[in-house]
Amino acid sequence: MKNHFLTALIALMFGFAGAGLWSATGLGNGQVRDYLVSNPDILPEMAEAYQQGQAKDRLAQVSDTVEDGFPGAVLGNPQGSKVLVKFTDYNCTYCRQSVAGVDQLIAADPDLKVVVREWPIFEGSEGPARMGLAAAKQGKYAAFYHAMFELGPPTAQTVEQAGQIAGLDMEAARTFAASQEASDALAQNISLASSLGFSGTPSWVAGGQVIEGLVPTARLAEALETEG
């Protein structure tokens, strides 16, 4: 499957490059092929440009939805006009490592709104994600989110502890965590992640760009300053 994908991608790149070079220089197909074979360093750039174009197309299809997260599941300024979307999992080491960088972005920009989308992709993550939504429902999401990551990989005990640290009404939180509303919110996050082509956490939407993985904070800050 991987080899078929690479073959198809290379074929596409040769096709696009061939058309571009032919129109720009008048080179024939054979000459274009020879040029590309002699300059293989441009292929990664072409692949990246192609992937970015595909990502923008996918984002355009869900742009009206992706920034409109579950009410209360927000860090920073809830009314901010600059929006960073984070797809996250409490069992994800890279998500935990990204917390400090996101906090730095928030501290540096009072207009930044961080929409957090709970995306439980690891085993044992759905329960904490549901409790995160329950915390958002009670207006105490940021405290729960930070406590969960500070306490390490989630367990039933750490989820309970994080809820207490956040000051949740635990009985109400457990009831909401088991609700259809929580199920629907997680289903939407899963659907959006799939639509955007994400393969893991953390994943981001920033400044009209789709970004995957643990990236430098400066990369996110740059994207937030570049709309479209």
Rank of each mutant, 00 (worst) to 15 (best):
V99L: 05
L133H: 11
P128D: 06
G18K: 06
A162T: 12
G213R: 11
G228P: 02
C95F: 03
E225L: 06
L186C: 11
R130Q: 14
A143H: 01
G152V: 06
S179T: 05
A60H: 05
A162Q: 07
L12N: 15
Q79L: 11
A24F: 02
M170T: 04
R58W: 01
M170Y: 05
L6H: 09
C92A: 07
S98Y: 04
T155Q: 06
R33E: 13
V116N: 10
H146N: 13
P128N: 04
I42F: 09
V205T: 14
V210S: 02
A108T: 09
L105A: 03
I42M: 14
E212L: 03
D57P: 00
L220P: 00
S23Y: 12
I106T: 11
F176H: 11
N91I: 02
S194M: 10
E222C: 01
R58N: 13
A143L: 05
S125M: 07
D34Y: 09
E150N: 06
Y90N: 05
T93H: 14
V159G: 14
A173T: 10
L168G: 14
G228L: 11
D111Y: 01
A108L: 05
L112M: 08
S81K: 09
T175K: 12
L186E: 04
C95I: 08
E222I: 01
S195F: 01
R174L: 09
D111Q: 09
T158P: 12
